Simulated scan of single mutants.
Amino acid sequence: MNLFTTTLPALAAVAALVFTWISVVQVSDELTISEQGQIADRYDTAVEKLVDDSTDVRRGAIYSMQSIMTDSPRMQPAVIDMLSKYIRDRATKNLKTTEKSPDIQAALYALGNRNPSHDANAVIDLRGAHLVEAKLEGMNLSNADLRGTVVSGANAEKAVLSGARLEQAVVKGTNLTGADLSDAKASEADLKKAVMAGADLAHADVEQADLRDADLTGADLSGVDMAGANLEGAYLAEVRWNDTNLAGVRRPEGDLPDDMSSRTAQPPRSQATNASQ
Rank of each mutant, 00 (worst) to 15 (best):
T6R: 15
T6Y: 10
L8K: 12
A10I: 15
A13S: 08
V18S: 07
V18D: 08
I22V: 15
D29Y: 09
E30M: 11
T32P: 05
E35R: 15
A40F: 08
D41P: 07
D44P: 04
D44V: 06
D44A: 14
I62F: 09
M69K: 10
T70L: 13
S72L: 06
S72A: 15
R74N: 11
P77C: 01
P77R: 02
K85Y: 07
D89P: 04
E99Y: 02
S101N: 12
P102I: 05
P102L: 04
Q105P: 04
G112S: 03
S117F: 09
S117D: 14
A122F: 00
A134E: 05
R147P: 08
R147K: 11
G153C: 00
A156K: 05
R165Q: 15
Q168Y: 11
G173E: 02
N175Q: 11
A179W: 11
L181W: 03
S182M: 06
K185W: 00
K185V: 13
A186K: 06
L191V: 01
D200W: 08
L201D: 02
A202P: 05
A202T: 11
H203F: 13
L211Y: 09
A214C: 05
G218L: 07
G218A: 02
A219Q: 02
S222P: 01
S222L: 05
V224N: 00
M226D: 08
M226Q: 09
L231N: 01
E232Y: 06
G233K: 07
T244K: 03
T244C: 10
A247C: 06
G248L: 08
R251L: 10
M260G: 05
T264C: 11
P267T: 06
P268R: 12
A275P: 03
